[in-house]
Amino acid sequence: MRTTTPARRRRRKSALRAGAAAAVLALAATGCQGDDDASGGERGAQAAPRWNTAPASIAAVGDSITRGFDACSVLADCPEVSWATGNDPEVHSLATRLLGEALTPERSWNYAVTGARMADLGGQLTEAAAQHPDLVTVMVGSNDACRPTASSMTSVADFRADFEKALAGLRAAAPKTQVYVSSVPDLQRLWEQGKGSAMGRQIWKLGICQSMLADAESVTAGATARREKVRARVVEYNEALRQVCAKDELCRYDGGAVFQYPFTTEQLSHWDWFHPGKDGQARLAELAHRQVTSPRPPV
């Protein structure tokens, strides 16, 4: 039997203490690593963009709807009743609802152009980005579907590509600007509501949305198929808007709210029975305000 000397016992105790210390250090290191990951996750969550429900400045881009076309007089823009940036008290625009008395020309801009299509959005967003607004509203796509014929509608691929390019340009120039994207209205419903007006049908013959509104009273198989084709394209446009917007943390699509809204003749312009009148503009403002001020995006 081997005799254990005092010196050997001291060396063994030292080794045990060293091993225990090493184990404690290893455990602590593992725990610290976990804490670092957690704190890093918290830092990442804090750094992620958060939707501001009270933007202090707003720019609008899009087409005739955002310009208030035919809402005040025939075949003319009326931006003062725009759902996005107008100052008409009957409409109570999104800008008015958000900014109140702080609504001034230095905090609100309307770069929409009557007749604009998705291909024009990039240029409008470039103008808007120069102001570095807290929020930009986008409502465009009706004119991509409203063409002289159904066969001349903008392809979904081009529509998507142009939207991606426009949004990327905005993000490069104004990385913190939030974007509210309205769905394209249901053009077939607008036809259904307005076709009963003899004056409206006459205005339509001047060239308004012929892919949908031509031969407004016709219920032939060909006319029905044409209208359904236009509506289907609008549905595809809206899906493209949703998908592209979902890739940007500061972009909020309306979830189809405008497309699904049950517009009636009360909301349509009594000049052309197709574009929103003041009441329609007010409904658009109401829908947008609900979406913009919600803590969470629509499901």
Rank of each mutant, 00 (worst) to 15 (best):
R2H: 13
T3E: 14
T5C: 04
P6I: 10
R10C: 07
R12L: 15
R12Y: 11
A18F: 04
G19L: 15
A22M: 13
A23V: 15
L27E: 09
A28Q: 01
A28K: 00
D37N: 07
G40A: 14
G40D: 15
E42T: 08
A48R: 06
A48Y: 01
T53M: 05
A54C: 00
P55H: 10
A56F: 01
S57D: 07
I58F: 00
I58C: 01
A59E: 04
S64R: 03
I65S: 07
G68N: 10
F69Q: 08
D70I: 05
A71N: 02
S73G: 08
S73D: 08
L75T: 05
E80A: 09
S82D: 09
T85D: 03
G86Y: 01
P89Y: 03
H92E: 08
T96L: 03
L99M: 04
L103Q: 14
R107Y: 06
R107V: 10
S108G: 06
N110G: 11
Y111N: 06
A112K: 05
A116I: 06
R117P: 00
A119H: 07
G122Q: 13
G123E: 11
Q124P: 02
Q131D: 06
V138M: 11
S142C: 08
N143H: 07
N143M: 08
A145S: 11
C146N: 06
P148R: 04
T149D: 15
A150V: 15
M153I: 14
T154F: 12
T154L: 14
S155M: 11
D158L: 14
R160G: 09
K165Q: 14
A166F: 07
A168F: 07
A168K: 08
G169L: 13
G169K: 09
G169V: 10
L170H: 05
T177V: 05
Q178M: 12
V181P: 00
V181S: 08
S182Q: 13
S183I: 09
V184C: 07
D186P: 00
L187C: 04
R189C: 04
K195W: 04
K195N: 11
G196L: 12
A198Q: 09
M199G: 01
R201E: 11
K205A: 15
I208H: 03
C209F: 02
S211Y: 05
L213H: 05
D215M: 02
T220K: 05
A221W: 02
T224E: 13
R226A: 15
E228V: 01
E228I: 01
K229R: 14
K229L: 15
R231A: 12
A232S: 12
R233L: 12
V235E: 15
L241H: 07
A246P: 00
A246N: 10
C251W: 02
R252D: 00
D254Q: 13
D254W: 11
G255C: 02
G255M: 03
A257F: 04
Q260V: 02
Y261L: 10
Y261C: 09
Y261D: 15
Y261G: 10
F263N: 03
F263L: 10
T265H: 02
S269C: 06
W271E: 05
D272I: 09
F274V: 13
F274L: 14
P276V: 07
G280W: 04
L287M: 13
H289N: 07
R290V: 10
V292C: 03
P295W: 05
